[in-house]
């Protein structure tokens, strides 16, 4: 992709490990650093710990050991730190997780009002702006169940963006979508990437990785097997496991 300026490190992940109660080791001494404006794509077989990594970043999963620092704030037991980090880190889920009892507009306004303490009018204008951006401005008064999967996911992106996050996490954002709807969601994600949003995307969309990523991480068994630019990654992978994985999905 076109050269862009990457900033200083915004996320430092040092030696984190996570074992689930059922004994599955999801993250094994995992470390990485992410710069501002960087687009990182995480790929790997299912169960390799990709989603767990994302979920640990904003505290949806607890880590057993290691350290996560987001923009100078450690993610620890301090509830205030946790809320601060979550406020600045947007997350988009595989199953959208929109609030079904609220309209599209209310979904996008809620956190602005409760967390950012924005006034109704400001929250509404920010929400409308974002809904125009993701192309759902004609459905603001609909309920999520009245939208297609692709539309719901675009609303979910707008909802996360409404908090003006410093980083966006995408957890298999297109995996639950019908094929014809994947494109519309990827388009929104590409636009964000080009605008300089720091993004960490767990995805199986290799086209997306090739087009917009600055760095690709291949994970297996809770570790980074290989990392590199998309070009390096797809043309000249070094590790056998990476080659095997790529040969299976390409």
């Amino acid at each position: 992709m076109a050269e862009k300026e990457l900033g200083d490190y915004i996320i430092n992940v040092r030696n984190i490990s996570k074992t689930f109660p059922n004994g599955v080791k999801a993250l094994d001494d995992f470390s990485t650093n992410i710069r501002r404006a960087e687009v990182v794509v995480v790929i790997g077989p299912s169960g390799s710990g990709k989603s767990t990594f994302l979920r640990c970043l904003n505290g949806l999963e607890e880590i057993d050991s290691g350290e996560i620092i987001f923009d100078g704030i450690p993610l620890d037991d301090n509830k205030k730190n946790r809320l601060k980090i979550r406020r600045d880190m947007g997350m988009v889920f595989q199953l959208f997780n929109l609030f079904p009892h609220m309209t599209v507009l209310q979904n996008v306004m809620l956190a602005q009002q409760l967390v950012r303490k924005s006034s109704t009018s400001i929250a509404k204008s920010v929400a409308m702006e974002l809904l125009v951006k993701v192309g759902i401005d004609d459905k603001v008064d609909s309920y999520p169940s009245q939208l297609s999967g692709g539309q719901q996911q675009r609303v979910a992106i707008a909802r996360a963006l409404a908090m003006k996050p410093k980083v966006m996490l995408f957890d298999e954002a297109t995996s639950a979508l019908d094929p014809e709807m994947i494109g519309e969601v990827l388009e929104v994600m590409k636009t964000l990437a080009r605008e300089g949003m720091t993004m960490i995307c767990v995805t199986h969309e290799l086209g997306f990785a090739k087009e917009v990523s600055d760095w690709v991480i291949f994970m297996d068994e809770g570790r980074i097997i290989e990392g590199g630019t998309a070009e390096h990654f797809f043309t000249n992978p070094q590790e056998d496991r990476t080659k095997l994985f790529l040969s299976q999905i390409l």
Partner: peptide, 12 residues
Amino acid sequence: GQWEASHSLGLT
């Protein structure tokens, strides 16, 4: 997912 979405938005 409802809890997770809400928490990820920073809601208490």
